[in-house]
Amino acid sequence: MNIFRFLGDMTHLISILILLLKIYATKSCSGISLKTQELYALVFLARYLDLFTDFISVYNSVMKVVFIASSLAIVWCMRRHRVVRRSYDKELDTFRHYFLVAACLALALLVQEKFTFLEVLWAFSIYLEAVAILPQLVLLQRSGNVDNLTGQYVFFLGAYRAFYILNWIYRYFTETHFSRWISCVSGLVQTALYADFFYYYFISWKNNSKLQLPA
C-alpha cells in the first residue's frame, strides 16, 4: 500500500459518500445517471468476486464490501425508493449502456492476463469502469446546470483514478516485476474522459460561478 493508492481509495470513498449524502439529504437523484450507477455496481460485482476466496487484508475486504453495498444501495434507491425515484431524469438518461457492457465483455474475452473465468471478469470490470462515467457525463451536458454535490461527486470520482495512475508509476519504479498494463491503459482512458469535465470544473471554481457544461 502506498500513499497514492490510499489517497485514491479515500477519494473514491469520498465520492460515494457525497453521492449518498446528496440522495439522502435532498431525497433527490436529479442530475445523477442511473445507468452509470448500474455500471458501477456491475464493475464491483465482477471485480470483487475474489472477496471470499483471496483474503488480502482487512482493509481490502472491508472496502470491497463498502463499494459493493453502496453501489447496490444507490441503484436500489434510484429504482425503488418512492420519493427519490420520482426525481430521476429518466428522459435525459438515455445512454445505451448495454452497448458498453457488450463491448467491454467482448474486449475482456480477447484481452486479459489469463483466459480464466475470474481473469476475464476482472479485465471486464477494468474496461467497464473506464467507460462507466459516460452516461453520467452525457446527462450532465444535457441537464445544463449541475448542482454542487453532483459536480463534486463527479470530480472526486475522476480524481481517484488519477491517484491510481500515480500509484502504478510508483509501483513500477519500486517493485521488480510489477506489470499492471491492463489497469494502467484503462486508467489513463478513464481519467482522460474526465478531462473536459475537470476543465469546466476548474473554470467554475476559478470564477466562483455555477458549473456549466456546454451542450
Binding site: 471485480r47 475474489d50 488480502i56 500509484n167 506489470s179
Partner: peptide
C-alpha cells in the same frame, strides 16, 4: 508479501 501480480488493488 502478496505477489504484485495478484489483484491486491481495489
Amino acid at each position: 508479501e502478496v505477489q504484485s501480480s495478484a489483484k491486491d488493488e481495489l
